[in-house]
Design a protein around this nucleic acid. Structure first.
Length: 890
RNA sequence: GGGCGCGUAGCUCAGAUGGUUAGAGUGCUUGCUUGACAUGCAAGAGGUCACAGGUUCGAUUCCUGUCGCGCCCACCA
């Protein structure tokens, strides 16, 4: 025992217990017919991932839920895995290769992909190891990867089914293009950032006329792709130009003037240059007016041959050169500063280019409708609920999803084309012969799918779909999805759509949206900002349990987490407190065996009944809070209970009993029985509290568990405490609260009078009624111990002795006998201050209680409470005033 | 331009379906090497619950508006 509790070294015990749990297969889940299932699929981190605070938070919260449900007897599954993260991983590996002087084009597609797999084998487990370090109780035997064989089958299956239903189509459309990653992006993969740019006003001459129109543009370099100039149909200023022909400056190409209501009258000059190949709204306008599309920018964002002499220049270089030329030719009317939102690639932060190209799309409306219904009908609940708004807002305005990516790392489209007749074949296996013309020159599409396409299948593909596995049947729909709000669109919405489409049911019943972890300035933690607090470092410094408790305690709903290291330090102190309290309790249980104790023989004292009652209430509160995802409150309630009730009061009160010194006043219990009772209660409460703490702090609780007498194999598989109604004892709580108040008041006075903590003093209690007298008498040993008294007398209506300081607690007056009072003035001032406070409260109360309207409208309990309170105030005030008078006489 | 969230102690944050003496951690002040713990113990100071109206017997809590902060969405080129 002493050995076990010698010193708390988180690092050692963490590794030890994690290994132990694994060896016992506690994390493994089997399909059970008797137990109800509780399942969570982990948001798969990128294989390139390195544990950051966001992961730590989300992992902790999921583990809290899983461990808590496991203890409650559910058949739990927490399914782990990683995501191949197409663009992100390709970028990482390209950078890795660049250090060796190799580009992906040097290698070619096949070799490059081989290298990515090699990289994955070597480094892809980093994040998994880190999750284990956090204590995550995932079923590692079911670890999945979004590009493993089973998953690839599922992806192809989904693609084919959607294609056959006409929900996947190929089209030439304007999409977001990242010139650096050289691939298409979906709309939500573009981050819009405010950029300080310019609005250029350029003259566009009217053919056969001295007149010209002035267009305003932020992107003059796209003018080589202009195929019209547009005005608003109601704009009287410019109607005269309708039908006229414009000569495009520099290019000298002729373009028409059209009218379209998408033109904003108030912006710029009210005349727009229309560039269908390089602007999404112009593209739409082009379709409405049958305009030609002229692509003038290469995929790498340099100008192409359509830009004439500017060919080969980067888009921004071209802009500058062109502007000079326009200026020289006097086409520029003016230039204004202009702030506007520019889209950037969410992976590499390069300004994206609207780009007309042949891409694959998913038709979203038919998929979105059932997904909207599912949330409206409450089949999926968001916590906090307000995120449903975000979900609906996006779903209601959903646009088709561009799913083809021109990169190499990912799920290749299961599409083959016939070179001869151009027929498209969609198939789960290689196609060699054209079904239409019989030709044999077939080639597979070179594009891969958006990573999020495969992520959308995560909840069911990981359980074996498209096969009808027992796991799928038992664990789908999953119970909860825990994730950040930033991927509601990317992931949550799409999983919902695909789950409903292919499983006929929602993928999860609840969605918990956790907070974003920020630094103290409120900035999102990120490596590039250099403001990260690394979980690994924190764990090293304070232990995993301290980090987990901190994150849980800060996980309030609807608010971001501003993490500071001293917060973690504070909760590290809590682990230390737990450790020491347990050490104290366990060393005092060496002669105690819970299995041999006959409960009915024990004689519970007030403090016993009180702490047991409090324990039951805390059990209740924790269970409720966890059920509602109020993690912070769950953590708070066990923290307060453990430290400020169990340690500060109960253990302190139990000490003399353990020391066999017995009570000062004769207590009905004999000393031995009192000790044994205290041991029983200490054991009972510590045991229960550890189980309540375990989901949040798995390691330290397991370590202590094994120091408890008669402990079971592991706390991990112990049962979650249940409330025993008969143990809730409001009367005991009330009485104990009175004692706490009395003791605190005496300590306060001692402190103010600067009486040494070591000095014992004598006290006389003046009470008004027999029942209060009894409570104090029965528990006088508590008063003696906790308030450091050497003698005490409890009397009904006694006078103030000489040389005494008086304290008023409710209706009780406490006289502390002192050889001489140090500072009468200070005492008086304190009394006066207190009286003032009471008077103020009393005034408010009296005013309310004499208000007819209040008496008529307020509920009876409220009036009753107020009346009770009023009486208490009056009593206290009387006592206080009495003592002030007495002091003044002295 | 829409939408959402947030302004509570010096700092970081809880909380109340409307009635509490408005809480915690941290910081601060004072006193303690108390036989588990100085990563600790005890005591204390510190708040017009952003501001202004409204509803109500009663608002810090509900409603409206104002100001401040943050975020998301949106084709003003």
């Amino acid at each position: 025992m002493e050995e076990i509790f010698a010193k708390y070294t988180p690092k050692e015990i963490e590794a030890k217990w994690y290994k132990f749990w694994l060896s016992k297969n506690y994390f493994r889940s089997e399909v059970s017919t008797t137990k109800q299932s509780f399942s969570i699929v982990i948001p798969p981190p990128n294989v390139t991932g390195f544990l950051h605070m966001g992961h730590a938070l989300n992992t902790t919260l999921q583990d809290v839920l899983i461990r808590y449900k496991r203890m409650q007897g559910f058949n739990t599954l927490w399914l782990p895995g990683t995501d191949h993260a197409g663009i992100a991983t390709q970028n990482v590996v390209e950078k890795y290769l660049a250090k060796k002087g190799v580009t992906r084009n040097d290698l070619g597609r096949e070799k490059f992909i081989e290298r990515v797999w090699e990289w994955k084998e070597k480094y892809g487990d980093t994040i998994i190891t880190q999750l284990k370090g956090l204590g995550a109780s995932c079923d590692w035997s079911k670890l999945r990867f979004t590009m493993d064989d089973g998953f690839s089958t599922a992806v192809r299956e989904v693609f084919i089914r959607l294609y056959n239903e006409g929900l996947i189509y190929r089209n030439n459309y304007i999409i977001n293009w990242c010139p650096r990653c050289q691939t298409a992006l979906s709309d939500i993969e573009v981050d819009y950032k405010e950029v300080k740019g310019h609005l250029y006003y350029i003259k566009y001459p009217v053919k056969n006329s001295k007149e010209y129109v002035v267009v305003a543009t932020t992107r003059p370099e796209t003018m080589f792709g202009d195929t019209a100039v547009a005005i608003h149909p109601d704009d009287n200023r410019y109607l005269k130009f309708l039908g006229k022909t414009i000569i495009l400056p520099i290019a000298k190409r002729e373009i028409p003037v059209i009218s379209d209501s998408y033109v904003e009258l108030k912006f710029g000059t009210g005349i727009v240059k229309v560039t269908p190949a390089h602007d999404p709204s112009d593209f739409e306008a082009g379709l409405r007016h049958n305009l030609e599309t002229i692509n003038v920018i290469n995929p790498d964002a340099t100008m192409n041959e359509k830009a004439g002499k500017y060919k080969g220049m980067d888009r921004y270089v071209c802009r500058q050169v062109l502007l000079k030329d326009l200026q020289k030719a006097e086409y520029i009317v003016k230039v204004e500063d202009h702030q506007h939102a520019v889209g950037h690639c969410y992976r590499c932060n390069t300004a994206v280019e609207p780009h007309l190209s042949l891409q694959w799309f998913v038709k979203m409306k038919p998929l979105a409708e059932p997904a909207i219904c599912a949330v409206k009908e409450g089949k999926i609940k968001f916590h906090p609920a307000h995120w449903t708004n975000t979900y609906f807002e996006w779903m209601d305005n959903i646009k088709d999803w561009c799913i083809s990516r021109q990169i190499w790392w990912g799920h290749r489209l299961p599409v083959w084309y016939c070179k001869d007749c151009k027929e498209i074949h969609v198939s789960s296996t290689q196609i060699d012969t054209c079904k239409k013309c019989g030709g044999t020159k077939l080639y597979q599409d070179t594009d891969v799918l958006d990573t999020w396409f495969s992520s959308a299948l995560w909840p069911f593909a990981t359980l074996g779909w498209p096969q009808e596995t027992p796991e799928l049947k038992h664990f789908y729909p999953t119970s909860v999805l825990s994730t950040g709000f930033d991927i509601i669109f990317f992931w949550v919405a799409r999983m919902t759509m695909f789950g409903l489409k292919f499983m006929g049911d929602v993928p999860f019943k609840e969605v918990y949206i956790h907070a974003l972890v920020r630094d103290l300035e409120g900035a999102k933690m990120s490596k590039s900002r250099g403001n990260t607090i690394e979980p690994e470092i924190i764990i090293q410094k304070y232990g995993t349990d301290a980090l987990r408790f901190t994150l849980t305690a800060l996980a309030a709903q609807g608010r971001d987490i501003y993490l500071a290291e001293d917060r973690i330090e504070g909760y590290r102190n809590f682990t230390n407190k737990i450790w020491n309290a347990a050490r104290f309790v366990c060393t005092n249980l060496s002669d105690f065996n819970p299995l041999e104790v006959k409960c009915e023989k024990l004689k519970l004292e007030l403090s016993d009944r009180w702490i047991i009652s409090r324990f039951n209430k805390v059990t209740n509160s924790m269970t409720q809070h966890l059920a509602n995802y109020h993690f912070n409150e769950a953590a708070q309630s066990i923290y307060n209970f453990f430290w400020h009730e169990f340690c500060d009061w109960y253990i302190e009160l139990a000490k003399p009993r353990l020391k066999k010194t017995g009570a000062l006043f004769t207590h009905p219990n004999d000393v031995q029985l009192s000790k044994q009772t205290a041991q029983y209660v200490l054991y009972y409460v510590l045991n229960g509290a550890l189980r309540l703490l375990h989901p949040i702090m798995p390691f330290i609780t397991e370590e202590i568990w094994h120091g408890l007498p008669a402990h079971s194999e592991s706390i991990m598989i112990a049962t979650w405490p249940e409330i025993v109604k008969g143990e809730i004892n409001d009367k005991a709580e009330e009485e104990m609260n009175l004692l706490i108040e009395v003791i605190t008041a005496i300590r306060n006075m001692r402190s103010e009078l600067q009486i040494s903590p070591a000095k014992k003093i004598e006290a006389i209690f003046n009470v008004e009624d027999e029942s209060t007298k009894k409570i104090l008498e029965y528990n006088s040993s508590y008063l003696v111990e906790m308030a450091k008294l050497d003698r005490l007398l409890i009397a009904i209506k006694t006078d103030k002795p000489e040389d005494s300081a008086a304290i008023v607690v409710g209706r009780i007056i406490i006289y502390l006998l002192l050889s001489k009072i140090v500072d009468i003035e200070a005492q008086k001032n304190k009394l006066i201050k207190e009286i003032e406070k009471i008077k103020l409260g009393l005034e408010k109360l009296s005013a309310r209680l004499s208000d007819e309207k209040f008496l008529q409208n307020a509920p009876v309990e409220v009036i009753g409470n107020d009346k009770k309170k009023q009486q208490e105030y009056i009593d206290k005030k009387t006592q206080l005033e009495l003592h002030l008078q007495m002091l003044q006489k002295e």
